[in-house]
Design a protein around this nucleic acid. Structure first.
Length: 895
DNA sequence: CTCACTACGTA
DNA sequence: CGTACGTAGTGAGT
């Protein structure tokens, strides 16, 4: 251990980690020669080594429970009583683990009557007092009470390999209370895993709210009379439960030990001892890792890893044949040794030859820690020496999920250069419905190659970036010719690839938001929710979970005796449409409150989600999924900025939170009006619809005038609404039934409307029928740019499936073409802005709308540029109409 | 803890 | 019995 480093004490809850390891690895795969299971021991050591590697602690101690009995079970016999029997295969492994730890010179500790957490708590305090940083690995949230500036909990989340760093900020973020308050929250809520019941009706949210309000559990209990409602009663009745829980979850911090902190220091290991111990356990791969990580005070030269052997050569070491971890199939592919240095990779052409080079990058601790490059026949791997960043910034290679990599690299100050290929995108274009868009699944599917990622004896796979890079190369080599054969290579090269670079930038920019504004909105909505809920309860005379369709069914259709309209699986629907119908029938005031409550909770939740999404830069960075839809559209997530309310006045106010941000003048939106209907007009070549778009008249008025044989200015709002619904519905495969339901007219009238429509605009029907027919024959639909979507269900014997497929098929070319056009527009806009030297920024895409931040002085230029670029993407039989909006925020800039 | 279901916001 | 999405809450299951 280098003396300059800050001493760091790592404390591990032995059983907690051993159990996780036990469930992560199959016992069947891990037995020693005596038939004793060793999966928990193996997994534990592997995970421990992983933590040692990442955290580089100087001191380590592992604490175990002696048995289930402790002073806590003496007070409360049922404490932790819900824990099931220890699995048979686990028995004996703790002892083996302690032995192995001893062989590695690692101190393990346990004590009669105390739990491991008490030992950890006491050691943690001791370590902190001695000026050390302390890391605690424990799956027990009670340890959160130990968190201080110096003490961090590594808490296992989802999966074996993930440890969340819980410090005070993380606890506050996740639970809404400070770490020191966490046990008070747990005392109120209860802890199922410890068999501790909490206050009935009190969940983490309520508990956090109270703690925030009163400051402590004690204060809450003192002021219990002030707490209203059911939960208030519950609290008063069960106060002693909380007190008991708090007593039980308090960890002892003053236990003393017969060793000193110095005894916990990690030093070199005795190779023979570890070797012997691991031999008993039949572990082979772990030995290498231990010795490499810890160093040995035994014979120095026995352990030499493959990579070390090459170190003498240079920065980049040639990898010999693909690692043993890959399947035999890979060995069939030609490999040749390439003497190379990092510099050779920078002049990428030499490596590529006629093939395509791909890279795979691994990032950890804000650094590039792994870099592999490959063509079909060559694999190079960086060994960690020298700086690979310039290579990445030069670009000129392919990689999987450029957009994600670009964002991750940007996060650590590296700007990824332009790329040549992204097999994620090519695989998506081949099968936009694919459920498993990951490299291993795709190479199995497209090239029949099975990638075996890890030796079953190894919990933590050794990373092999060049293998990943090689997989990408294979995928590029297989999918591009297929795309070419299908006529969709241009969609890949000219649309998706360039769009991914534009999207990467948009994601990184994010959009500025006004946090105070959003918080005010949230507060208002929160008050409204509470008010409306109380009114609703008063009307029906009792409380009910207004968010529970099931409970609402009881209230509406049993207690209030209403007659349901639409049926869903659980009974009658309680959705807004059904409630509206019920309201027409009964005018019951409860329905009003319920609808208002739904509205307000939905908006409140959105406001909350948005607030939580604001990053340190004061902006919201959504992620666009370029492979998330079957039609070619984008989707937006974390948060979804493509469904921010606009229709209702109250909802629209949320848009006011999105602003241009410091240094920018205003927001500008550019949207295509009725783009899908225009595409329908073009594709169908229906003379009536084409004329409608070229007439310069309001579209729906024009169509209405044709349909009802009146002058355009004689079309009533009612007529216009019907025509509009009809026009849009067409593109979705709307039926007379659906049209009738939507317009609340009878089916006969709806049917008549459709017949009239088709008699005036016959080309549309012909076109739609032809789309479906073609899709039935070919098995897929295409957009005008060649994007395909397969339709396996179009010939299904099951009516429902076939019908669903039919409607989706007739819509896909229109929605897909619109998506293509918008993506091209984005690419062209970005390019034009660049060429014009504009400093304005493209920030968001919402299917048919783009949102820009306008740099001071660029408003007119940008307006012109946007109109031009969006409008001239493609020449159709009807013009592409672009509408511009300008305003200080998204609400004002909207249309 | 995960999943299906219901609900609801957008284009 | 209208296409395409993402998110959140409930309640029943593991």
């Amino acid at each position: 251990m280098s003396s300059g480093e800050k001493p760091t004490l790592l404390l591990i809850d032995g059983h907690s980690l051993a159990f996780r390891a036990f469930y992560a690895l199959s016992p069947d795969n891990f037995k020693n020669s005596a038939g004793q299971h060793t999966n928990a021991v193996h997994g534990f050591i592997s995970m421990m080594l992983n933590i040692l590697e990442l955290e580089k602690p100087t001191h380590l101690c592992v604490a175990f429970d002696v048995s289930r009995e402790s002073f806590r079970t003496k007070e409360l016999p049922e404490y932790k009583g819900t824990r099931g029997e220890t699995p048979e295969e686990f028995i004996g492994q703790t002892e083996l683990l302690v032995e192995a730890l001893t062989a590695m010179n690692i101190v393990s500790v346990s004590r009669e009557n105390y739990e491991a957490d008490d030992l950890i708590a006491s050691l943690s305090v001791a370590g902190e007092k001695a000026g050390m940083e302390v890391l605690v690995v424990s799956g027990d949230r009670d340890t959160f009470q130990l968190i201080t500036e110096k003490v961090t909990i590594l808490y296992p989340v989802k999966g074996v390999l993930n440890l969340a760093r819980m410090d005070d900020a993380a606890v506050l973020e996740k639970y809404g209370v400070h770490a020191r308050q966490y046990p008070e929250l747990a005392a109120l809520v209860g802890e199922t895993s410890d068999n501790l019941k909490g206050i009935p009706g009190v969940g983490p949210k309520t508990a956090a709210k109270w703690i925030q309000e009163f400051g402590s559990l004690e204060a809450i209990l003192q002021n219990a009379e002030q707490i209203p409602g059911k939960v208030g009663n519950s609290l008063r009745e069960n106060a002693e439960l909380a007190v008991r829980n708090r007593r039980l979850n308090h960890l002892l911090r003053d236990l003393e030990f017969d060793f000193t902190l110095e005894d916990l220091e990690l030093g070199p290991v005795n190779e023979d001892a570890v070797s012997e111990s691991f031999a008993k356990l039949s572990f082979r791969t772990l030995l290498t890792r231990v010795l490499k990580l810890r160093g040995t005070n035994g014979s120095q030269h026995k352990v030499i890893s493959a990579k070390v052997m090459h170190e003498e050569s240079d920065h980049t070491s040639v990898i010999d044949a693909p690692a043993a971890a890959t399947s035999a199939v890979i060995a069939d592919l030609p490999t040749e040794p390439i003497p190379s240095e990092l510099a050779d990779l920078v002049s990428i052409e030499r490596l590529i030859g006629s093939g395509d080079c791909c890279v795979h990058v691994e990032i950890a601790d804000s650094k590039v820690v792994g870099l592999g490059a490959a063509t079909l026949s060559k694999r190079l791997q960086w060994n960690g020496e020298g700086n690979p960043d310039p290579l990445l910034e030069t670009g000129g290679f392919g990689t999987w999920d450029y957009k994600m990599l670009s964002r991750n690299l940007a996060g650590i100050g590296i700007s990824l250069g332009p790329i040549t290929n992204d097999p994620l995108l090519s695989c998506y274009l081949i099968d936009p419905l694919s459920k498993d868009l990951n490299p291993d699944a795709q190479i199995r599917q497209h090239a029949g190659i099975d990638i075996v990622r890890q030796d079953p004896n190894e919990l933590l796979s050794q990373s092999d970036p060049s293998l990943d890079a090689w997989i990408y190369s294979v995928l590029v080599a297989v999918t591009c010719p297929q795309l070419e054969a299908e006529g969709s290579l241009a969609v890949y090269r000219d649309i998706e690839l360039p769009a991914s670079a534009v999207l990467a930038k948009m994601e990184q920019l994010g959009i500025a938001v006004d946090r105070d504004y959003l918080e005010t909105q949230f507060q208002e909505l929160d008050a409204e929710v509470a008010k409306v809920a109380q009114e609703a309860y008063a009307i029906i005379g009792h409380e009910v979970n207004l968010a529970s369709p099931k409970q609402l069914q009881t209230v509406l259709f049993e207690e209030l005796g209403m007659v349901g309209t639409r049926s869903v699986k659980t009974g009658f629907s309680t959705n807004a449409e059904a409630l509206a119908t019920l309201y027409e029938q009964t005018e019951h005031p409860f329905l009003e409150r319920l609808l208002a409550h739904r509205d307000a909770t939905k908006l409140r939740q959105m406001a909350e989600t948005l607030i939580k999404s604001i990053e340190k830069d004061g902006r919201i960075h959504t992620s666009y999924s370029q492979v998330g839809t079957s039609t070619g559209r984008l989707s937006s997530e974390n948060p979804n900025l493509q469904n921010i309310p606009i229709r209702s006045a109250r909802g629209q106010k949320l848009r006011g939170a999105f602003i241009a941000g410091a240094g920018f003048e205003t927001l500008l939106t550019a949207d295509y009006s009725q783009i899908e209907l225009r595409i329908m007009a073009h594709m169908s070549q229906d003379a009536g619809l084409i004329e409608a778009f070229n007439a310069g008249e309001d579209l729906h008025n024009f169509v209405g005038s044709r349909l009802y044989d009146v002058a355009p200015d004689q079309v009533t709002p009612d007529m216009r609404a019907k025509v509009k619904a009809m026009s849009y519905g067409l593109a979705y495969g709307l039926s007379d039934f659906g049209l009738a339901r939507q317009l609340r007219i009878d089916k006969r009238e709806a049917k008549q409307l459709m017949e009239d429509y088709f008699s005036r605009f016959g080309g549309i029907k012909t076109y739609l029928d032809q789309v479906v027919q073609r899709a039935k024959t070919l098995g897929y639909t295409t957009t005008i740019y060649g994007r395909r979507r397969p339709f396996p269900d179009l010939n299904s014997k099951i009516f429902q499936l076939r019908e669903n497929a039919r409607r989706a098929a007739l819509n896909a070319p229109m929605q897909g073409t619109a998506a293509d056009i918008m993506k091209i527009a984005m690419v062209n806009v970005a390019k034009a802005m660049d060429q014009a030297g504009l400093r304005s920024q493209l920030l968001l895409q919402v299917h048919d709308e783009l949102v820009f931040a306008v740099y001071p002085g660029e408003l007119e230029t940008l307006k012109q540029l946007a109109v031009t670029q969006l409008g001239q993407v493609v020449k159709l039989s009807v013009p592409l109409d672009v509408h511009i909006g300008v305003g200080a925020n998204w609400e004002l800039a909207g249309h």
